[in-house]
Design a protein around this nucleic acid. Sequence first.
DNA 1: AGCACGCCGACT
DNA 2: GTCGGCGTGCTC
Length: 653
Amino acid sequence: MNGAARVARVLLDTRLPQLDRLFDYSIPEGMAVEPGVRVRVPLRSEGRLTPGYVVEIAKESQFEKLAPIAELVSPVPVLTPELWSLARAIASRNAGNVSDVVRLAIPHRYVRVEKTWLGVDRATESPGPALANLGSLPGYPEGTIETLLSPGARTLLQQPGGIIGEGDGERLATTIPVAHSAAEALARGNSVVIVVPDWRDIELYRQALDDVIPMELLVVWDQDLTPAERYGEFLRTLDAAPRVVLGSRHAIYAPVHNLGLVVVVNDGDEAHAEPLSPYPHTRDVALMRQQDTGCAVAFTSLVPSLNTLRWVEKGFMTAVSPSSSSRPTVIPTALGLGSDQSVAPGRLPSQAYQAAKEGLRQGPVLVQVFRAGFAPGLSCAGCGEAARCNRCHGPLRSSNQRQAPNCGWCAKVHVPFVCPECQGNTLKPRGSGVGRTVSDLGKAFPGVPVIRADGDKPLLRVGGEPALVVATRGAEPIAQGGYAALLLLDGASMLQRESLGTLEDTLRGWEHAISLVRTGGKVFVTDVEGSPALAVASGVYQPLLSHELAQREALRLPPAVRFVAISGPPQITATVVGEAVAISPDVDVLGPVLLDDGIVRSVVRFPYSLGPAVQSAVRSAYLRTIQGPRAQARDRVRIVFDTPRTLDVLSAD
DNA sequence: AGCACGCCGACT
DNA sequence: GTCGGCGTGCTC
């Protein structure tokens, strides 16, 4: 017997919100338990065992009789103190369960993988070859690297476009500053976490990283890995030595040693929004990790997101741009005859058609098209503008032709409809039938091979030979030597989507395609006028985005304000919403709107300063709804914070 | 979620 | 008189 009995505080691995807190258990004699290890514990009934994680060891408990831990599942402390703290912060910000966050962060355990990892004697593992200390960030002003890597720094780093190097050494210019920053941080003994939107980026950034850091220090967290491989890579990041972790979304949780820098690439890409509860966004998780660790955080992109631009404008973040940039000539071509008129084969403006023909003599030509059949909605039959609510700026909808149009956010009925642009009264459904077909374009350029790349037929690279490459936005392959020309089609249709993300998505999509064009290549944007045309021609997006941000401020739309979408059965939804609204007159509600049979959605808006109050009110109201009498599983409400995409869902079917 | 504790109908 | 209905409440 050795004096004080030890008590383990255990986080249960369960989806039940009522159990999402710590439970005390006694530690059986001789069981080697430390914070972070996986255990199995009895819960109420002696028979069933529940998996969980020990998060701390205490001297005593306020409970009289403690059940003992039934089993030490694994001696590996996977739930590190930093991860535990991060999970709590995320759960609190999203009014969700800590255990749900832990489930996102820690992959499933594979005994064989773990045994192999435990078998490696890491004490004798070599620290890796000496690294070149680059000391500066090529292409950026002097001192940029110091700004970027200083502890606690928050940087918005604008990436250069274009293609660098030749043959096997060909790289996207966007990847270079990221790779160099990572190498520099690593040389200083720090770990780096780089989070990119998708597999395509993982491939491209991996190449750039391979050029400047030793392969054995690079860990790649790919969504495509098998679960066993994921666990192996997770364990590699647990090593007590610096690593560079490259991955999508979930890589933001990598429990690396001595984290110095987090890089979030293209934070505006929707792939950074976690689709699983509690729906955290990479952007927010990155800042929460900074809060815990004091690491530097950098957001990199060709076009800043409204969120990061807002931070820059508030002085919360420092913007850094390349000292010089070479951008291809971009020519917007407005048709002037009405959007469906065509003056050349394949419905292309003649100028663009000529440029494409010319480009095809020298190499591949990229055609970016808009994915057809997107967000349903209504637009004015007179002027084609997206139909919006004059109260909250939400999209109008109607479930059938005869039904009066109402707002998808606040449910206001618009009878009669009056278009704010042209005073027209007629609405038409929108979004169908846009987008040019591959065969259309093929006919316009007889004899030229047409290569198609989209979500169904993903393609990372194409050769340097002349070919017409037709790609949907986001699926553009890299062309060897860069594209000779680029046509950006359907710009007007993209900009007319009523979604909140429209402008950002469109600009980012354009600039990404432009970054794949070779030096001296030509770019044509069809059917776009006004300030978007000016912005894409000059490559200067900031005034346009600042203006958009100011509008969001005036309309009280994100990211100027925070919001939470609460959906579920009307009664329960109203209860939860009511708690939030009671906090302050600065909290207001849009809706409820009917989503589906018996399911409504309300959107609660609030200033950032009221975040903690709204979060805890929503959480406690939610907990009461599941505890209360006659609470059924299907009566659950769904709570999603700060995810504009949830507002695009106009109906649940 | 499970499972136990708890106050009202038909059974050997 | 007891066995058991599943309504409410707790789980270290």
